[in-house]
Every structure is written in structure tokens, then in C-alpha cells.
């Protein structure tokens, strides 16, 4: 991400900034493990969503889990660990990140 650095005259007064700008910052390249979402097995319990530290569980407009936001996902694997689905019908599985 090559974002032009602001000069001091371009800064908001008083060391302030609009909230939420970190959304522009990608942390997806931190991953070595990658969660894969299997929609057909998802029971929409939202445990993955509740425990994801990176707000990286994607929901659709009906608030159903639809996938992982790889822009932010750091691959910690909490979503997989907390997913209560059975071994043979996992909604989230981890695999090695392919570069």
C-alpha cells in the first residue's frame, strides 16, 4: 500500500483523526495459516464472529456468515478452534497459506 504521507498542514487539528481508518490497512499478509469457510456446514452460531479479534468474519445483509475477510484475517485460527461443528462436517478448517 503506497499511500502518500500527509504534510503537517494537511493534518486535522489537535492530533485527531476520523475513526475507522484502519479499515484501509490490510493485515492479511500476516497469515501463515488460512481459515477456509464451508458455508454448507455453518450453523450460524456466530462463535467465530464473537471471538475473531480482527473483525474478519464476513456477514451478509441478513447477518448470515458468508466467509472470511482475508483483507484482515491474520490466520490465528480462533474461528476454527471455537467452531462447534462436528469433525466430519466442519464449517471452518485451516490450511497452510499458499504464497
Amino acid at each position: 500500500m503506497a499511500i502518500k504521507k500527509m504534510g503537517w498542514k494537511e493534518l486535522m487539528p489537535g492530533d485527531a483523526i476520523s475513526g475507522g481508518t484502519a479499515a484501509e490497512f490490510e493485515t492479511g499478509d500476516w497469515r501463515s495459516e488460512k481459515p477456509i469457510f464451508h458455508k454448507e456446514n455453518c450453523i450460524n452460531c456466530y462463535f467465530c464472529w464473537a471471538y475473531c479479534p480482527d473483525s474478519a468474519i464476513l456477514l451478509d445483509e441478513n447477518k448470515k456468515v458468508v466467509g472470511i475477510d482475508y483483507k484482515y484475517c491474520k490466520g490465528c485460527g480462533i474461528c476454527d478452534r471455537e467452531c462447534p461443528t462436528k469433525k466430519e462436517k466442519r464449517a471452518i478448517t485451516m490450511e497452510t497459506e499458499r504464497k
Binding site: 484502519a22 479499515a23 490497512f25 500476516w30 479479534p53 480482527d54 483483507k71 490465528c76 485460527g77 480462533i78
Partner: peptide
């Protein structure tokens, strides 16, 4: 997302 906390 996009904050810099450790994974996990």
C-alpha cells in the same frame, strides 16, 4: 479490522 494486534 486492520489493527495491528497479534494474531489471536
Amino acid at each position: 479490522g486492520g489493527h495491528r494486534a497479534c494474531a489471536g
